[in-house]
Design a protein around this nucleic acid. Structure first.
Lengths: 387, 387
DNA sequence: TTCATTTAGTTCACGTTGTAGACTAAATAT
DNA sequence: ATATTTAGTCTACAACGTGAACTAAATGAA
């Protein structure tokens, strides 16, 4: 139900509007903000003043000389108060990243290690060490950590990682194993990477992010908002049916995309022991490797055709392993999309590689907290006023 | 961008909150409304008073005796002021329907006629006659028509029906050919039928409505809102790939769902000249008809598996021709869904037949206007106060 | 240099809206 | 009858945005 609005909510909303306008529109003067938001100069002045006091906005020096009239004072987002912590558990590494309100990276670290088959307790202990280091540094910078989000690859619901096929985990609740001074939320890697691309990378208001790992996940962004389905499990692109009579899949079905374009299938078909080896083979023009990529690309194209027909996507971003394989995948994928979608829609969707690569998930994770602050700055303003 | 809020918007929003609470929560007293909305009794009293004056709410007699204390006066949605007009052009008929704010049908008419190959001008002239009749009756009832929506089967954008394969139309702009005293909006039949089921039928907050006609369309409802994709063309379930090497489809691809479960494919495989004939054959246990339905059901199941994996649907409603074929389709569809989705999710989505049948589209069309009034009653309140 | 002009930002009386609590109304329980 | 309970209204008040007057700080013309 839409919530009732009182004076307090009205103010909260207008704080958000002003902060958001600055966040999107670069440096803006109060006068420009009044024009953009439709609020009066006096209201904007009050709101900007409060946001500056709260440390969410900062005045840059007097602006743009050369024109007639008193020059306005521009305000920008301030990275001086709030920060957030993004965490990621991947098969091959652990990563943490601290972002400030402006999207600036204040701390980042990554520990390469093979997590395959490691016990959750052990992996999370190491992650906790990394996170503690990040929090210490953030504290040293005088920033307040507004929250933390952890990215894992596998279906997630209600704080539980149901299954992580690449790690061999089942029903793990990471927050219970992490002792950190901030609450840690959990979400799926593909979803968070999609948000990362949306806010800091190749994403736009509407697009599908495809995450090629052991499984193939996807994050769908609609109208600038992550779509997560009825129970939060949307985006299982890997089990979209590509050939009903195809190879048996671990999901119980057969002919799922994963059996054609999943990392294991790719490596097996390409006769390579690892992704770097596959890449090397591709670089030197190795036949089986090229064929493997081409047929994986066609399968991906078919699955994406179904997705585009259902969802009317106008942009697709390939991430995960597919980022590195993009030069060899994009041709077959585009070709299938173009021929299969040509009859129904003018132009096929734009296909691009991830711009953030392996950083997408931690950026999305930390960004989610940042964007929550941007979407509701009122508590920070109030707290600043009380102090 | 989120819009700035002033006092006027605050009030508009709270009017909406109160009206919406009554709309969803059946008859409610002012006291109950205060509790439900979180607004104070005095505010609710004022808002309810204004909504009653505007003719959007009505007081029913004093409520529920038997308990202690003064009995409250219950208010309900009032169907006495606003109405809306839903229109539909189908291959086999034209239909109009007038709804009031409560969802009550105030007028309905349907002209059976074969529109295949008819010129747009001719069909729309007949529709205009029907609509004029409906508007006259609405006027006689003292209702104000808040808007009209026309449902057509085919992709729609910006008031243009790009193509209607079953009618043989191309790039028609129906609003230009209709002379009516209310503006007429255009939308896709599957989308509007989905909304019809959502508001007045078998739909819930999240579900996929499948419309089996010549083509196979779908309307996706997420969080109670229709999802229409980047350019409004979402829901092309008919061109989800079911078998990449399958039969050639008119879209340029091959192995699309439509080539297996579209009306033409069904009739051809079932050896029946028409849908009634196919139904009769099914009723008497005719072999080819049963086989045709079973294999169409399996194809539909495969396409829906892909949809569920992508979108995490928990409910699917089969409409259009599939409503009548439901007894023969539901088995194969469910079987495929269950076996293919079992490994990943606890329970497969709930499958049901449309509850509204052929009325879904006009109900959704008229309902869309009604729900727009419910979502923003302020203009009606203001106008009532000025008069 | 001086002053008109232009644009930015602040101040303050005011209007609109929701709030809190006293008050009136209408029922049941004792 | 009277106490109790719940519904609904009324009124003084508070929160917040508005609008116009006002101050501030630049450019340009004389």
């Amino acid at each position: 139900m839409t919530q009732a609005v009182r004076h307090e909510e009205m103010r909260a909303r207008n704080l958000e509007v002003v902060l958001g306008a600055v966040g999107r529109g670069g440096p803006l003067t109060r006068a420009a903000l009044a024009e953009v938001t439709g609020l009066t100069k006096s209201t904007v002045s009050k709101l900007v003043g409060d946001l500056v006091d709260a440390g969410l906005l900062a005045e840059t020096g007097p602006a743009r000389a050369g024109e007639r009239g008193r020059p306005g004072v521009e305000v920008v987002l301030s990275g001086a108060r709030v920060a957030s912590l993004g965490l990621e558990i991947n098969v091959d590494y652990l990563a943490v990243r601290v972002l400030d309100l402006t999207g600036g990276v204040r701390f980042a670290a990554r520990r390469e290690r093979d997590n395959r088959g490691s016990r959750p307790k052990k992996v999370l202990a190491e992650l906790q060490a990394l996170a503690t280091e990040a929090l210490a540094e953030t504290h040293r910078l005088g920033l307040e950590v507004a929250g933390a989000v952890l990215a894992v690859s596998g279906p997630v619901g209600d704080g539980v990682l149901f299954t992580a096929p690449n790690l061999g985990w089942q029903d793990v609740r990471p927050a219970d194993l992490l002792r950190l001074p901030v609450p840690v939320e959990l979400d799926n890697e593909a979803n968070l990477a999609a948000l990362g691309e949306l806010w800091y990378g190749a994403g736009e208001r509407d697009f599908l992010y495809v995450s090629g790992e052991i499984g193939i996940g996807a994050g769908l962004v609609v109208n600038g908002v992550l779509y997560s389905g009825a129970t939060g499990l949307a985006g299982e692109l890997g089990h979209v049916v590509v050939a009903p009579e195809g190879a048996q899949c671990r999901c119980g079905g057969s002919g799922c995309l994963e059996t054609y374009a999943g990392q294991e299938a790719l490596l097996a078909a390409g006769n390579a022991p690892s992704v770097p080896a596959l890449l090397a083979a591709l670089e030197r023009g190795d036949g089986p490797a090229l064929t493997a990529c081409a047929s994986a690309g066609r399968a991906l194209g078919i699955a994406l055709t179904s997705a585009v027909n259902l969802l009317d996507l106008d942009r697709i971003v390939l991430g995960g392993v597919f980022t590195q394989l993009y030069p060899w995948l994009s041709g077959p994928v585009s070709e299938v999309l173009t021929t299969r979608l040509g009859g129904l829609r003018g132009t096929p969707p734009v296909l691009t590689a991830s711009r953030l690569g392996g950083d997408a998930a931690t950026l999305g994770a930390a960004g989610r907290v940042i964007h929550r602050v941007l979407a509701d700055p009122a508590p920070f303003v109030t707290r600043a006023q009380e102090a």
